[in-house]
Design a protein around this nucleic acid. Structure first.
Lengths: 158, 158
DNA sequence: ATGTATGCAAACCATTTGCAATGAC
DNA sequence: GTCATTGCAAATGGTTTGCATACAT
């Protein structure tokens, strides 16, 4: 009997999640998880669907949506609703590399940002009648490109 | 000539915003701003539209949407996209009373939370090539009601 | 006078739903 | 065998758009 502990793979985590919630472990669900595992940044339900198609793997959008919901539920994927209509997803890599988003109010571009001070202070906060599991921090502002654009436009007005 | 400074009213702020952006100061826009000023918590575009109707003031949903966008643009209103499909708005009261949201992942209920330590650390953060104007912090977790519900359900399973 | 804003209806489009067929258990 | 899941097509619903009319400038 092995006592060596290694972190569970995402496959194992998802498997266990499905098992313990009496949900079925279908090939589609694991095929989707696999493609999610290959993503590096943000992706939409639609782009994930296209990735599957390009791989020659047939799944319906319906299944992509429902599986993404499960993955969000079990914490393997994060879902964001920035300013566009479509939801944006991303892999929830280990909690160590939690990151936040800088969103330009002018062009909508999104950059990632890490800050352990912020992480620590928020994670250690306790709230009455509420058990924290995670948090999302979105910082709005103007990116340097748009700042320059703004300056140019102001000059023209004068 | 008066040198006494008082904070501008939201009406004045909006007026100035419209002026300087060469947008028209229509009665509808100010009528909507007035109703927004009477709200206390979260509201949707639809509920705001209904408030106007109940007041006997005729505006189209189109105008409500476009005016809300202007109000968000000039910082008088905040827009949130939590987990439902509809956007949620709220008045952006003075920056002093900035607040954040505790969102229950099970029932979706949203509570407000204030924390000056968190505010300070985030506000004072500087980012490369990005000028911060505001931020939104959403904390996810389980509310006490749902925690109790969870415990009951686990007992039943056994 | 000029052209933006309004309001209606129609379009949009990401997501959800209904339902028959499939397949995990 | 049972019943959740899949996949298609159709529905949903908040939001946006097109366009004629009204009105701020």
């Amino acid at each position: 009997m092995s006592v060596i502990k290694r972190p569970l793979t995402t496959h194992e985590l998802f498997d266990e999640f499905l098992r313990s919630n009496r949900k079925r472990r279908t090939v589609e669900r694991f095929a989707i998880l696999e493609r999610v595992g290959n993503t590096t940044g943000h992706f939409s339900a639609e782009s994930l669907f296209e990735i599957m198609q390009n791989d020659g793997y047939h799944v319906s959008p319906t299944t992509v949506y429902s599986t993404l919901e499960l993955l969000v539920e079990c914490g393997l994927v994060k879902r964001h609703r920035f300013n566009n209509k479509a939801s944006i997803y991303e892999r929830a890599s280990g909690s160590a590399s939690n990151h936040h988003h800088l969103i330009c109010s002018m062009c909508g571009k999104i950059k990632e940002m890490r800050d352990s001070d912020i992480d620590t202070i928020i994670k250690n906060k306790r709230f009455p009648a509420f058990t924290q599991t995670s948090f999302a921090l979105n910082i709005y502002g103007i990116c340097s490109t748009c700042t320059r654009k703004q300056r140019r436009e102001k000059k023209l007005k004068k």
